[in-house]
Write a protein that binds this DNA or RNA. Structure first.
Lengths: 120, 120
DNA sequence: CTACTCTATAACCAAATGGTTATGGATGAT
DNA sequence: ATCATCCATAACCATTTGGTTATAGAGTAG
């Protein structure tokens, strides 16, 4: 993957159940790597890798405290990704399409048949 | 990737600029493969692959019409993914965190120092 | 300074991803 | 029937991904 933009990085980061679970955990509180790794059966380096991906997408920030490194949820990129997807809200129900077809039929040319509803 | 659930499939599908562009194109109208492939410099089989990924995520459905196969946007999975992300709305601004900290400080135990704000 | 704790990095591996070219299959037209 | 069109599939390839174990590094404690 070329990881072109922020959006790509965020969606790629979310496309993994482990990383989604890490984000979920971080909604409760900041946490160090050991805490984050505890619920999973995978190794600590694997969790560190996932955290790096999340950090790369801007979904978490990290800070030191003694030897521990705490992860902190940064949900702003999620907001941007949500905004992107909400552009498709108009298509979330078929009713909008049918409304469009009806409107088009009555404005462009009166008394069209139903064939126009199959746009191509 | 294990492609566990629908959410994983949808985010993985969105984690590619070409596929996002295909979805964008399909907001205008249904289209056959040749039309969809036209704006891109990649080969037709590459586009077919991307369409299969989108179909696998439930983001498009397909139908035949003569030799052509038309893709149709199905945005419902996007709605579900948006709902998932909106669970993080609460964390989209720092102000909520600070409000929480203030509330915790005043309800759990009066006159706490600022150290408690660093949750761990 | 040494030892310990917590985490990152290195090196490696299997599988998935995103692309290619070449070919095959289904459908419509002549 | 044959041919043309549109698309899918096969076979292949390079890169990325997600995991492993082993080791190194940064910080704290004694």
């Amino acid at each position: 993957m070329v990881m072109d933009d922020q959006l790509t990085a965020v969606f790629a980061a979310l496309a993994d159940p482990t990383r989604r679970a890490l984000l979920q955990r971080l909604t409760e509180s900041d946490a160090n790597v050991a805490e984050l790794a505890a619920p999973f059966e995978m190794s600590q380096p694997a969790i560190s890798k996932h955290l790096r991906v999340l950090e790369g997408a801007g979904l978490i920030t990290r800070s030191r405290h003694a030897t521990a490194r705490f992860s902190h949820l940064e949900a702003e990129p999620l907001r941007e990704a949500t905004e992107y997807m909400e552009k498709y809200k108009r298509f979330w129900t078929k009713s909008f399409d049918k409304l469009d077809a009806a409107l088009a039929a009555y404005t462009e040319q009166p008394h069209t048949t139903e064939e126009e509803e199959n746009n191509a």
